[in-house]
């Protein structure tokens, strides 16, 4: 078992076109670090300084991680992480 990470179209240049990749880690930060080891540059597109980039949303099992603990949100095998760019509604 691993953690599935769904990648939006605009970031698939970093994953050789893969829509979803797998990774491991105890926190979101570790998970992103693990992904970056195999997909160099991905971390920089998601993280800026100590937090997520302003126009990047990350969801753990459909819940926005900004309300769960940000980059230190605990993650575990079997979880699904979804990355999406912030878009307008209304």
């Amino acid at each position: 078992m691993a953690i599935e990470v769904r990648i939006p179209t605009i970031l698939r240049t970093y994953t050789d076109g893969a829509k979803a990749v797998e990774g491991k880690g105890g926190t979101l930060d570790e998970l992103i670090g693990d992904l970056d080891a195999r997909h160099p540059g991905l971390r920089d597109r998601l993280v800026e300084g100590e937090g997520l980039r302003r126009f990047v949303n990350v969801y753990l099992n459909d819940e926005d991680v900004r309300f769960l603990g940000g980059l230190s949100t605990p993650v575990a095998d079997g979880d699904t992480v979804t990355v999406l760019p912030a878009v307008a509604g209304g």
Binding site: I10, F55, V56, E63, P85, G90
Partner: peptide, 23 residues
């Protein structure tokens, strides 16, 4: 979008008003 920096967050949005947010 062409890149993640073209995303959009409404000016009205204040994260502190919400308890949580689901996709």
């Amino acid at each position: 979008l062409r890149n993640v920096d073209e995303g959009f967050v409404p000016e009205l949005y204040d994260e502190s008003v919400l308890t949580t947010r689901f996709s």
